[in-house]
Amino acid sequence: MQQAVGGSEAVVTTLGPSPMLRCEGLRKRYGDRLAVDGVTFSIAEGECYGLLGPNGAGKTTTISMLCGLAVPDEGDITVDGFEGGTLEAKAAVGYVPQDLALYPDLSAVENLTFFGQLYRLSGKELQTRIGETLELVGLADRGKDRIGTYSGGMKRRANMAAGLLHRPKLLVLDEPTVGVDPQSRNAILETVGKLGIAVLYTTHYMEEAFKLCDRIGIIDDGHLIAEGTADALIGDHGGRDKVHLSCDGADLDELAAACRELENIHDVHEVDGNLELSTDHGPAVLSAVVAVATRHGVDLTGVEVRSPNLEDVFLSLTGKELRD
């Protein structure tokens, strides 16, 4: 189930009767720059939705609108059945901002107490939740320490704890792994993976979106340009498998011609003195390709099969790299 989305005439995806989040035709202008231009998408209960896009694509702006921090110029937001920006909608969302948004001069427990109180938690319940949440993000033994003394990765985890404390129905994570060491990154991804609530996850790391998200929306320049499961997106926009043949200084023209004769090879071209073949399924053609090379007396110094990924999807949709 996937579809390309273009502008405000987009169709609502075929989700359950009441999705956790629904954005329709969101538009936000800053001065004469359209930061978000007609973004429409929905997130079902328990679904992890990834918003993938380069710097300045409009991810944070979209999030600001659905967390009630910015009012859209146009469009509608519904969170858990409530209109976006209302207190009920805000209560359903757990917002984890891109930058560390905690008081560095207070301890994690003090910070969480404060944010818990903002979400109407108090007393024993609040204390229990704080303990559980710190446990969940792996900071249970550092709760009494001031946030200012934490390492970068620990700060990020504490930042996430503050968004999880009130058990939101929709967790909104704005690039939670930027500048984070591999250990903390894994801890964060693992935590998100086992939550089981609806998650909106923005990132410009395609591997994360691929691993974590049930569905992915690709956003560029304020537009949601494609949406679907990672497999569907790659199938539709990623292009074919590439087989890369490194062949030291051999005469490539003859080999290229021979490869073109093979079944299931769609395209052959020369890249920097090597050959690159396009095929529907790389591993299947590999033995035939190697046999042809041997027959033509070409010494292969390396053979590499590469399946298309979300980078390729992005490249084919926008003509530019996801990351610069």
Partner: peptide, 13 residues
């Protein structure tokens, strides 16, 4: 720090 933003995202007037 963005703490104010975060406070604004909470269900408070």
């Amino acid at each position: 720090l963005g703490v104010l933003q975060r406070i604004s995202a909470a269900p408070v007037h």
